[in-house]
Design a protein around this nucleic acid. Structure first.
Length: 573
RNA sequence: CGGGGCGUAGCGUAGUCCGGUUAGCGCGCCUGCUUUGGGAGCAGGAGGUCGCAGGUUCGAAUCCUGCCGCCCCGACCA
């Protein structure tokens, strides 16, 4: 491609709406343009990168036996009602005003299961891995960070269909390995975390993460043993609050000015871990009292997993007063109405000597014994792990980092096959729902994360795997100097014949502009031909990543490019 | 949805508080001449419903009301 004829609208200045490097550089390099909040056009240069990512995805999915589909974005709403996901997705599901029986698909479990039900009748036809790379629509409440969270985005989604749970484990493992290869080939530094399966009812789930301050997820990492978990499921080896022996007697005491755990600690000098913080949630319109150690933070994802529902919210102060007869600062587990379910974090399991509100304004109890003084308590891991807590595997301090989710693998089970009646007959003649897995990769996120990890103050630094063109041939003064032009044209021909995709900067602009655009666009290699090199019968090869410049004789140009390209490609794997 | 910010030419912005000639500047764009290895110089030129609608006023980018859009933080995100 000749640059003079290419549509590559680069920007010298940073558009004000772009806050993070990948967004800024994708705009500045002419890869994307915004059309609406969370909606972007890919311009030719950006789309070349998309196609390269898609090729990697297809190759690796095909390698594990995946078969590519192209499913419709328009879905009948009935099928979404059948799995109860119209309600579950809520406002995130796009609906159509002038065709109300259709919705825009945010994911494709339903359609896949629909086709499985149509045609898969026997265990003999399984396993299957079905995938597609397609546009998803999600009415995100707040799109952000360029293409990192959009209302319309590309996703590689795949689904495994198995007759047995062991089969599901194998399909899941194949995806795990394929995902490793995909992200490695894309040149990403990433890690895998255990994740919540949430209210979807699946059994196991892992997320592929890229560490970034711009990420929307938070993970606990152990650099020592490799433990990694999303904070929604992360645990630590923090010891539980030990029992006192003998158990001291329950005692009511006035605390007129203590509304928070910190007040209690300051005013009465009590140890933080002996305080039991009481929080109240309304779960399916029933009150639930939750006891947390000291100032530990309740994790709502863990609560959702414990309660097996996401239909809950913190209680309002008025509701708390109605139920407990006291303000939020004075409630506790003693004298709780029978209708209130009591949960406690596992750190408090069957312990004693605790201080908590007395359900009487201005009073607390001390020496509460959860076994002696409180009715039925259900214990769950509910607390949010904090920085520096000991790793649950090796006791070394945990690190808490922000991360961007680029892939998610998920053992679904039979939720969708049951809801939609996708069943098979087994060898013994019995009928059973197909056992499914679902696996997703965000295409734009791979690109944005790559740029987040591979840029400098001048621009993007592409590797051979994702670069929109293999290399940039820069002709200095080609429009004025016919000797340079002849050489440049010849190299342009030869490079293409050697199977390189080449962008040939033949524009009639100054050298400085060409060099700056070259660094901004970030192709792995720049081949520079100008009057200066011509005098010595050489060309200059600049390696974008290192900034290294080689001067090679004209007749060695192609072979040197091939060598270096090979070297750069090797370095990736 | 809560909080904050913003909307003036393709991009970046000044002007808005305190209403008043023709809305200014840099980059980019067009023409000519000169220049030519890290975003050239000179000269000339094109390009604006000041987000939209209504209101106040002799007069509105500027004041008032409503709406729309975009960004950031939070909530949310199988």
């Amino acid at each position: 491609m000749r640059y003079s004829q290419a549509f590559i609208p680069t920007l010298r200045e940073v558009p004000s709406e772009a806050q993070i490097p990948s967004h800024q550089l994708m705009l500045r390099s002419g890869m994307i343009r915004q059309v609406a909040a969370g909606v972007y056009s890919f311009l030719p240069l950006g789309y070349r990168v998309v196609k390269k990512v898609i090729t990697i995805l297809q190759e690796e999915m095909d390698r594990i036996g995946g078969q590519e589909f192209h499913l419709p974005a328009l879905n009948p709403i009935e099928i979404w009602e059948a799995t109860d996901r119209v309600a579950a997705m809520g406002d995130v599901l796009f609906r159509l005003e002038n065709r109300r029986n259709l919705v825009l698909a945010p994911t494709h479990e339903e359609i896949i299961t629909y086709h499985a039900r149509q045609h898969i009748k026997s265990y003999k036809e399984l396993p299957q891995i079905w995938y597609q790379i397609q546009t998803k629509f999600r009415n995100e409440p707040r799109p952000r960070s360029g293409v990192l969270r959009g209302r319309q985005f590309l996703m590689k989604d795949s689904y495994s269909l198995d007759a047995t749970w062991e089969g599901l484990d194998q399909s899941y493992q194949k995806h795990y390995e394929a995902y490793h290869r995909i992200f490695s080939r894309a040149g990403l530094r990433f890690f895998v975390v255990g994740a919540s399966s949430g209210a979807m009812g699946g059994s196991a789930s892992q997320e592929f993460m890229v560490e970034s301050p711009h990420g929307e997820d938070t993970c606990a990492l152990c650099d020592h043993c490799g433990y990694a978990a999303n904070l929604e499921v992360a645990t630590s080896a923090l010891p539980p609050v030990p029992r006192l022996d003998p158990s001291p007697p329950l005692e009511l005491f006035p605390t007129p000015h203590a509304k928070t755990i910190n007040d209690l600690i300051e005013q009465f000098g009590v140890p933080e871990e002996r305080c039991a913080k009481s929080v109240v949630y309304i779960v399916n319109s029933q009150p639930v009292l939750i006891l947390m150690r000291g100032n530990d933070e309740l994790n709502e994802e863990k609560l959702a997993a414990a309660l097996q529902t996401t239909q809950f919210r913190p209680a309002e102060p008025e509701e708390i007063a109605d139920i407990f007869g006291a303000a939020p600062g004075s409630i506790g587990p003693i004298n709780v109405p029978d209708s209130v379910r009591i949960l406690a974090d596992t750190l408090l399991r069957e312990t004693n000597g605790l201080i908590s509100g007395a359900n009487k304004d201005g009073y607390h109890y001390k020496n509460i014994d959860l076994v002696r003084d409180v009715g039925t308590i259900e214990y769950f891991d509910l607390r949010t792990v904090r920085e520096h807590e000991p790793c649950p595997q090796c006791q070394q301090p945990l690190r808490i980092v922000r991360a961007i989710e680029i892939g998610h693998i998920f053992k679904l089970g039979t939720k969708y096959s049951e809801a939609l009646g996708a069943t098979i007959l087994l060898e013994d003649g019995s009928e059973q729902p197909i056992i499914m897995g679902s696996y997703g990769i965000g295409v734009e996120r791979i690109i944005a994360c790559y740029i987040e990890q591979n840029h400098d103050d001048k621009g993007i630094i592409w590797n051979p795997a994702l670069t929109p063109y293999d290399l940039l041939l820069i002709g200095i003064n080609v429009h004025k100097d016919s000797a340079v032009r002849d050489i440049a044209e010849k190299l342009y021909e030869q490079l293409q014949q050697a199977n390189f995709s080449v962008l040939f900067d033949d524009r009639a602009v100054s050298a400085g502009i060409k060099f700056n655009d070259a660094d901004l666009l970030g192709f792995p290699l720049q081949l520079i031909v100008g009057p200066r090199t011509l005098k010595e019968q050489t060309v200059e090869i600049k390696i974008r990543r290192s900034g290294e410049r080689l001067h090679v004789p004209l007749d060695a140009a192609i072979s040197t490019v091939q060598e270096w390209y090979h070297k750069l490609s090797e370095a990736e794997t």
